[in-house]
Design a protein around this nucleic acid. Structure first.
Length: 716
DNA sequence: GACCTGCTGCGGGTTG
């Protein structure tokens, strides 16, 4: 008789499952138990909800660690993107391990130094950790880390999709290589992910070395019913001038949120604040019991926690939020998901929609609200007549309904994160020879596309910046600036952040505003859905001391540009040139789409003459190809302005057409194009690099030549 | 016309 997955588990774990009254293991859990305990290589577990994935990975792992403990070493790492997720897993794992002797430890920024020392002094069991804290473990405790990780067998990566295609993911991959090198045995990775994007990219991430096998288990959930509506509104002149949402939109939103818990995603933190305040006012005036709260990354954690708690506990609540509530944090079942404006991506819209109707048999409810300029006449601004935000929202909606989502992008020449990893590895090892650093970080590490000569150029550049210093023996050690970088709090993360001022009301921390654009004493602003006036700056100049006061407008936050995938852009063109109508779009939306199509027929697309000697070029291509086309024009001496969908040339239509034709030749010279891409510094440590390295980096992973060529061909 | 995430060790003083 063959062993059942259940019988493979340690007796203590079997008894625990019995205590918890688990009647049956789920199919994904059975597969994972067999793959971990009987198989070899890495494992990818893909399933759309968090329920059961953590147990699928850890039942077999803690079972194995209890029966065969790793002497004096941590047996498994659990790496996650959020402290809140690690804390949640910590509780579940501790509970799972009550009957077996497998210690569970936590290490992240909120964990007391004392508890971290317990890991260093008496390592064992499972360690839950963030990538940044793993970096600090390796860099600040290199000697101990060797012992702590000497017999490491597993690294479980939670929410793997949150790392794919990001600088943080590249850092994590490099850390996994460094950790594997410290250990004695084979390190097996277990990736947990929602069924997002490209399973192939997730599989590639887990295959640390070329020959490594990855077993993939995917649990497909049945199609859930989706109730979906797209509402469009026309902005009045006042709305445009005051940069606010139309009253009709806000009124409908309040009305739709009356019947239970709602999450409404807005396009910026500023919009979260204004919409929350406006909705509260409308609901109050109408005597409705529903309350509106704000939730975004610039609010104090305590305040965010209170909103999350209220969302779990109450049903007469709507929360206006940015992407903070898109994944991770458990806020329970939500009746309605709202989206104000076109979503940032289809992937994000899928995640957001998934927040609704999580209980069996309950449909998901999604409503998208788009405000467009009222621009039906021919003397309206030409680009306004195309209603591009509405068209983008419909494009994203159709792709959502077709089940398509953006695959993660890959960066093949991330010299910024490589710089961090060089500093980290040199600090960890106390120095290193250039060829060894290249082998460990690049040839056999997370940066395989960086060849020896480029690596040598990078080292020379870091030498000039005094990040590194070469000793007579040829060994590299940290230079003066390198030492400063390594000992700064900002070193551990791969992504950059802006400096912020705390906002305090008495002893209570409300949130944060960027230093560069923070309000002055006497000025009023909205934060956490309330209006405040700045009374003073505190003595150290690190906090704004505020008091409640009416009349505040949304504060200014800093942000980059939005990225669009080429497929969304191409779908927008198809919608404008086609005739299809959509049952999910309301009457106003249908009328505005027809107006946009009429306008479209009156323009010599892809060019739109703007009058005043300017012409807009709408290539309908992805963001990276757009930047490639902009660089192509810049290489001919034409500076195109405009963002998102349009490149605006300071030329009348005929000359614009010729300028584009003439500039097209530059597509054959990627190095020249790369030199014209702005801004040149895209990543955290790019300010340390010289222009030559930056241009090489852009040439290798900052251009989309294929997308640019395709956009040019369609023009013909 | 964007959003989110993360994060020291150590010396010196005070208290029980």
């Amino acid at each position: 008789m063959t062993d059942t997955p259940y019988s493979l588990l340690a007796p203590g774990i079997q008894r625990k499952l019995y205590d918890m009254e688990w009647s049956e293991l789920r199919p994904l859990q059975k597969c994972a138990i067999e793959a971990v305990l009987k198989g070899t290589g890495h494992v990818l577990l893909a399933a759309s909800t968090a329920a059961g994935k953590t147990e699928a990975a850890f039942l077999p792992i803690v079972s194995q660690l209890s029966e065969n403990p790793p002497e004096g070493s941590v047996g498994a790492l659990a790496i996650g993107p959020l402290r809140a997720l690690l804390d949640d897993q910590f509780r579940r794992l501790e509970d799972l391990c009550t009957r077996i002797e497998v210690p569970v430890h936590r290490w992240h920024g909120d964990v007391a130094a004392q508890k971290k020392h317990v890991v260093l002094e008496r390592p064992g069991g499972v360690l839950l950790i963030t990538p940044e804290s793993l970096e600090s473990l390796l860099v600040n405790h290199p000697g101990r880390a060797r012992a702590v990780l000497a017999r490491l067998r597993f690294a479980v990566i939670d929410e793997l999709h949150a790392f794919l295609g990001t600088e943080r993911g590249r850092q994590l991959l490099s850390l996994l290589h460094r950790v594997r090198r410290l250990g004695a045995g084979d390190l097996r990775l277990v990736g947990l992910s929602a069924t997002l994007g490209d399973l192939g990219k997730a599989r590639d991430f887990l295959a640390l070395s070329p020959g490594d096998g990855v077993t993939v288990f995917e649990e497909k959930t049945g199609e859930r019913e989706l109730l979906f509506r797209l509402h469009a509104y026309e902005k009045g002149d006042d709305d445009v001038r005051e940069k606010r949402l139309p009253q009709a939109l806000l009124g409908d939103l309040v009305d739709h949120c009356r019947n239970g818990r709602s999450l409404v995603f807005a396009s910026s933190r500023a919009q979260v604040e204004t919409a929350a305040a406006a909705c509260s006012g409308i609901a109050e005036k109408a005597g409705l019991p529903v309350r509106f709260h704000a939730h975004h990354g610039s609010l104090a954690r305590e305040i965010r926690g209170e909103v999350e708690e209220a969302l779990r506990a109450r049903s007469d609540l709507a929360v206006l939020c940015s992407s903070t509530l898109e994944l991770g944090i458990d806020v329970g079942k939500v009746r309605l998901v709202g989206q104000i404006g076109a979503p940032p991506s289809v992937a994000s819209l899928v995640q957001r929609t998934g927040r609704s109707g999580r209980r069996k048999g309950e449909p998901a409810r999604l409503r998208i609200y788009v405000a467009e300029s009222a621009a039906s006449t021919e003397d309206a601004a030409p680009l306004d007549r195309l209603h591009l935000e509405l068209v983008e929202a419909i494009a994203a909606s159709t792709l959502l309904l077709e089940g398509w989502i953006e695959p993660p992008t890959t960066a093949t020449c991330d010299l910024s994160t490589l710089t961090q990893q060089i500093v980290g590895l040199v600090a960890q090892e106390g120095g290193g020879k250039p060829d060894v650093l290249h082998r460990e970080l690049c040839a056999e590490g997370a940066f395989p596309d960086i060849e020896v000569s480029l690596f040598a150029s990078l080292l020379r550049c870091l030498g000039k910046a005094e990040i590194l210093e070469q000793m007579g023996s040829g060994d590299l050690i940290l230079g003066r600036e390198g030492e400063r970088l390594r000992t700064s709090l900002d070193f551990y993360g791969a992504f950059s952040s802006t400096r912020e001022l705390a906002v305090r009301h008495g002893p209570r921390l409300i949130g944060f505003l960027p230093v560069a654009v923070s309000p002055a004493p006497g000025e009023t602003f909205l934060l956490a859905g309330k209006s405040w006036r700045v009374a003073a700056l505190d003595e150290e100049g690190a906090a704004l001391l505020v008091v409640p006061a009416p009349g505040g407008a949304a504060p200014v936050f800093l942000g980059g540009g939005a990225e669009m995938h080429g497929r969304v852009a191409r779908r927008m063109r198809e919608l404008l040139e086609g005739e299809a109508t959509f049952s999910f779009v309301d009457d106003t939306g249908a009328r505005l789409l027809e107006e946009a199509r009429d306008a479209c027929r009156s323009f010599p697309l892809p060019l739109v003459p703007l009058g005043d000697e300017r012409t807009a070029w709408l290539p309908f291509t992805g963001s990276r190809a757009m930047e490639t086309l902009r660089a192509m024009l810049a290489a001919s001496g034409w500076m195109a302005t405009g963002r998102r969908a349009a490149l605006i040339l300071p030329l009348p239509e005929g000359r614009a057409r010729k300028a584009i034709d003439d500039a097209a030749e530059h597509l054959g010279d990627p190095a020249r194009l790369a030199a014209h891409v702005r801004p040149r510094r895209r990543r955290k440590h790019d300010p340390l690099l010289d222009d030559e390295l930056l241009v090489i980096s852009i040439e290798r992973d900052g251009l989309d030549l294929e997308g640019a060529r395709e956009a040019l061909e369609i023009r013909q």
